[in-house]
Design a binder for these strands. Structure first.
Lengths: 342, 342
DNA sequence: TTGTAGGCGTTATCAA
DNA sequence: TTGATAACGCCTACAA
């Protein structure tokens, strides 16, 4: 079962197209770069010749002549298999791709160990594989910001709080949905709530914690922060027993939230009778588990569209301002209910 | 909140590195292309200069001078949101990426409507954005095979039955695991089994159906094929009532299998008492639902590694033979149990 | 072991 | 409205 090696047929060049259309190479170039100084007839002839020969301007040659690579870099850190589980990443990918296609760009993706992260950013930039990067999962004191600044590589932050003025950021507005969530829980009689986060110090975690705690305090509720102990033999058991007076758990991670809901009954806890559970992200998985998870939905497609716009602007050398995207909303399902009596 | 446009600083070139190291540009080139005719000392000096200047050979220039682009194309069809749900795709991505990184390649991904599929393959190939393509979700009489042949683009099939000799394929060996599964179900007393597939005519579906039916018949069991009616108001209800004498359902799609398990109790069916459920793919989601899904695990990382090897070979102009990857295995969980008495 | 020169495919400049 | 020509950054002979 063998395959003949791809024939080393010479691929058509702009010269071949020019010859076929009976014009000069510059005429062809003009047509494909939208310059107006070619008559409609010759332009049509050129296009036909190009289609016939299956020719399009060679990206590499264009690049050498000064154009952009037309590719956006996305480097994902493989942390505790979160990429493999968290549905957010797939939504991100399918959100990024259509706006990129619209401007003729593609997405260059890779998944790396955190130890290799900086090296890959450097490599991709130095070898001019991409025009810029989308930064996700920004950490506190993230080395990437300084690195990319030093390299002079355009970058757009996605889903992280605005990091000073150094990098334009696309951030989801949380304030309204936090109110919505606290209203919901408050109406159900919950007074002691916890946000559950992972140990990793993602930049958005601290901000969310602060906002959440403040908003809770403002309405006389108590909010604390609990840590998800992924290393424990049974993280759910651990958490449910360590939660003290807390009657509602709000998880940053949909993966953890769904696991709690699935595992709780086996540990003798009933959701939402004993404890209410909320996920800060939403996807089909929240709708799959029983009871279905109450979750915070986010306008991801909109954010990715904006992020791509910002990147395009940066690459052109224009200014790019950070954007706060509204539109988060609470999706109430079955994992939140009346607070148990004490 | 604005960002100063990326300074139009000239990026270093091979000439700058040569100057810094006090050598000629060809010496630099030699070092970065592993040619042995440079003394160790000068090579070290050159490397240091390159690192200092943050220089790596420009991919585009290399390409223009005849080298490969070092990028693999993956074009995913956005069908019924399966990319957003099916955990397989993420495993595929994280499986492809490390072997690519090892040979200095990246992955160019996009998600397209099926109507745009051929156009994107053509575009990416004609503009020389990628060196070749990984083909997944091959359909019966898939137009892509002929298209890529016509374009002369290297392609490797993943997860599909070998398509003649036209394209090298990496296929998961199913025979053993089918036996394993039928043994398992047979021991539980199941005699009437169904494979449940979607309408879409994916190339692997027919093959699996045939193999499965034959293997079942060989041991005196009856196997049929049921269709998942995704358009129904309640596909699970529809399926459970239309299944006739079948006591075990084997789903091609993990998404559907998990939905059945989640929804069945609400419709008055108990899994596995009333009906056993199996998923042909495995992931954390199969382990998340209750009862946990019995599933067929697959060595995806191994397959992707092999696929990348084949691609690298094709691009070098070497022969590439199709490979049958063993290692699928049955993961017995809680969704399969004794067949109900009739 | 190192350096020189020509070529890769495209675009931009400028002349026709 | 068109066409000739010099870049762009790197690599591969080939020469020194």
């Amino acid at each position: 079962m063998t395959e003949t090696p791809s024939a080393p047929t010479k691929r058509p060049t702009i010269a071949a197209v020019a010859r076929a259309a009976g014009v000069s190479t510059s005429a062809v170039s003009h047509v494909f770069n939208g310059r107006p100084n070619v008559s409609a007839e010759t332009a049509a002839r050129i296009m036909r010749a190009a289609d016939d020969l299956n020719w399009r301007p060679n990206l590499a040659s264009r690049r050498v002549a000064g154009a952009a690579v037309r590719s956006l870099g996305l480097i994902i850190v493989q942390a505790t298999g979160s990429f493999q589980k968290d549905p957010f990443y797939v939504r991100l990918l399918s959100g990024l791709t259509p706006p990129l296609a619209k401007i003729g760009w593609s997405l260059s993706v890779t998944v790396v160990d955190i130890d290799d992260e900086d090296a890959v950013y450097r490599q991709w930039w130095n070898e001019q594989r991409v025009d810029g990067f989308i930064l996700i999962d920004l950490r506190e004191n993230d080395s990437r910001v300084a690195l990319l600044e030093r390299l002079g590589a355009p970058a757009v932050l996605l889903g992280a709080p605005i990091a000073g003025d150094r990098v334009p950021a696309v951030t989801l507005a949380d304030a309204d949905v936090i109110d919505e969530l606290l209203d919901h829980l408050g109406a159900l009689g919950h007074t002691h709530i916890a946000r559950v986060t992972e140990q990793v110090s993602l930049a958005h975690v601290g901000v969310r914690n602060a906002r959440f705690t403040d908003a809770a305090a403002a309405r006389g509720m108590t909010a604390e922060v609990l840590h998800w102990n992924g290393a424990a033999a049974d993280p759910v058991y651990k958490l449910l027993h360590a939660r003290g007076r807390v009657s509602a758990l709000v998880f940053d991670s949909e993966v953890f939230a769904t696991q709690v809901v699935a595992r709780a009954p086996e540990l003798g806890f009933h959701v939402p009778t004993d404890v209410s559970v909320v996920s800060w992200e939403d996807s089909w998985v929240s709708d799959l588990v029983r009871p279905r998870l109450t979750a915070l939905d986010a306008p991801i497609e909109q954010s990715t569209q904006i992020a791509v716009d910002l990147m395009a602007r940066l690459v052109k050398g224009d200014l790019a301002a950070s954007v706060l995207v509204p539109g988060r909303r609470l999706v109430v399902r079955d994992s939140t209910g009346p607070a148990p009596l004490r």
